[in-house]
Design a protein around this nucleic acid. Structure first.
Lengths: 339, 339
DNA sequence: TTGAAAGCGCTAACAA
DNA sequence: TTGTTAGCGCTTTCAA
């Protein structure tokens, strides 16, 4: 591998001139520029990012913190981040914390040790104190999950309103016994969505039953399935379920099938996120669509702005209620056939 | 942010000594070591990886090339890669090519420009000539998808045998009209799995019908669904389907439901990969399990070995046929109840 | 055991 | 327009 000195030598110019050609400086005559480019070609030279990055004290790497890569919600967001990052000549360092503080610290070190220029945190279990501390000297954006007190800019949706609308949809279909499958109140989104659930019940004069709220602790199909098993053990079974994640909803659907109950006739189900797989369930899952791609790309834009010292503002993106077969049956409100 | 010079100054030693402490050299007295560590603490110093990496001419970053992050097959593999990488103090740069040569070249540049120490390629559409060329000077491992002529080490499964077993399973259940939903013959795995399909038919004296092979071009639920639509238009419908990917199989399942046909009574279905969703379909999808996590972690080990100049050998990992409800119905071979 | 100094490959300030 | 040179932050050789 040749370096800039060899190129300079071959082209008969100084390293500074080579550097100028590499960085498209306009103070190079086209003649020398051509000579340099020939030399670059002849030596098959590629500038080393190690040298350039040290000199520029940047890594052009963005750290993306996610709790769990298996949740399809994240990869749509990641796609948005990557696309935008690439457009600005950044690459992403994908870091799965598994909500493990040790791993989290390893990843935080990447930014303190200059290996990453900034962080997009999507981890609801992130150590917010450390993050807040870090944000004093480093560019950080919170994506989807956030803490307002940290003062760290975020992009998210209105979780409470979205949940409210989901539950209201169930109520409008005539349901009065509506269970909530939640993950864990330690997550902000979980608290907010629960708040929306409670508010919707209250606003429609439906009494809240504590037995209708089930906490799985984590996300994942099996947790949803287990939650549904518990719920179906109750003497007075709910007629509808709101699950705070499609993953939980899909697991719950499976249990309902296993018990040979009909969806939505016996039990209606609505999830949250609109992951791709929710289009494939039987029946197709009603859910709340999050603008995952936009969320990722906005977060990336905000982070890059922050890195360049600009101020950014919090963003609340719109969500969309998807009324589909798992609540509506095979027809929608207008009586049109659904699959 | 302080640097090594300030630490040295504060501790009253040279930068060399600080460096020695940082790298756990044993030629430092515990007294000086303590002084240095105090200084590090007092200044909240973190060594810059930019400086270290330039000096060591390494980035400690591994580039992972995948075609499409949305395929859950990849993220299980990625988990395996990340875990192993982290264990060796490497991080991963996740790069989604979208099978776009332009993006691919951007990512290849990361290794020629020293931003990545090696590549794990999982992209079946990768430009194999470029990759082969690159492999002369850089550490590269092929994972799952591979080309033998390139001489680049790979870790994979026996796609042909796995497909053979899947189809044989259908035949043993009495099926004679077995369709193949394939992606595209430009992919090696697609050719190999098709070969296994053909061989199984041949070995069991079943005539091959060209109309029973459908190419989707790409992977994805919708492609599977569209394939199934086409297949069901035929006058002589198949009684069983082998799809080369769970994604295609799940899309196909949806179409079968939409046409109110029963699985497996009217049509049996077997997929490939055993992605997490395959446990959640209705009915549960029969499939071929790939050891995704192991595949990833072996690939990472091999790459790190290659980076350190060691020779590595190709690895063929075992697969496992999963006979489940979408072929067996609600009971297995022993008559045990399945869900 | 410790320090001085060279140098990894690059960019940019300054000089010519 | 081009060259000289310092220096980004670190590791390591060589000398003391």
């Amino acid at each position: 591998m040749s370096n800039i000195r060899e190129v300079a030598h071959k082209a008969g110019v100084s390293v500074a001139t080579v550097s100028r050609v590499l960085n498209n400086s306009d103070s190079v005559t086209s003649a020398t520029k051509a000579r340099v480019q020939d030399a670059i070609h002849a030596l098959n030279y590629r500038p080393s990012m190690l040298g350039r990055n040290l000199r520029n004290s940047e890594s052009r790497l963005l750290l993306v913190l996610i709790p769990e890569i298996s949740n399809p919600f994240y990869f749509e967001v990641i796609k948005g981040i990557e696309e935008t990052a690439l457009h600005h000549y950044y690459n992403i360092l994908l870091c799965e914390t598994g909500s493990d503080p040790i791993r989290e610290n390893i990843y935080f070190d990447l930014v303190t040790s200059k290996m990453a220029d900034g962080i997009i945190s999507m981890d609801p279990a992130v150590n917010i104190d450390t993050l807040t501390q870090l944000a004093k000297n480093h560019a950080i954006i919170q994506c989807s999950e956030y803490e307002t007190e940290s003062g760290i800019p975020y992009v998210t949706i209105d979780h409470e309103l979205a949940a409210y609308e989901a539950v209201e949809h169930l109520i409008q279909l005539g349901h009065k016994q509506i269970a909530l499958i939640n993950s864990d109140k330690k997550f902000l989104y979980a608290r907010q969505r629960e708040k929306g659930y409670l508010q919707a019940l209250k606003d429609h004069g439906i009494t809240f039953h504590e037995e209708y709220v089930y906490y799985t602790g984590e996300l994942g199909f099996d947790h949803g399935q287990r939650a549904m098993q518990e719920i179906l053990k109750q003497s007075k079974k709910p007629t509808a379920i709101f699950a705070v994640s499609d993953l939980l909803a899909i697991g719950a659907l499976k249990e309902i099938h296993a018990q040979a109950l009909h969806i939505p006739h016996d039990i209606a189900m609505i999830g949250f996120d609109k992951i791709a797989f929710s289009n494939m369930t039987y029946p197709v899952l009603s859910t709340v669509e999050q603008p995952m791609h936009t969320m990722g790309s906005r977060a990336a834009e905000m982070l890059i702005q922050t890195i360049h010292g600009k101020d950014v503002h919090n963003v609340i993106l719109p969500h969309r209620l998807m009324k589909r077969s798992s609540t509506m049956g095979n027809t929608n409100e207008k009586g049109e056939q659904l699959i």
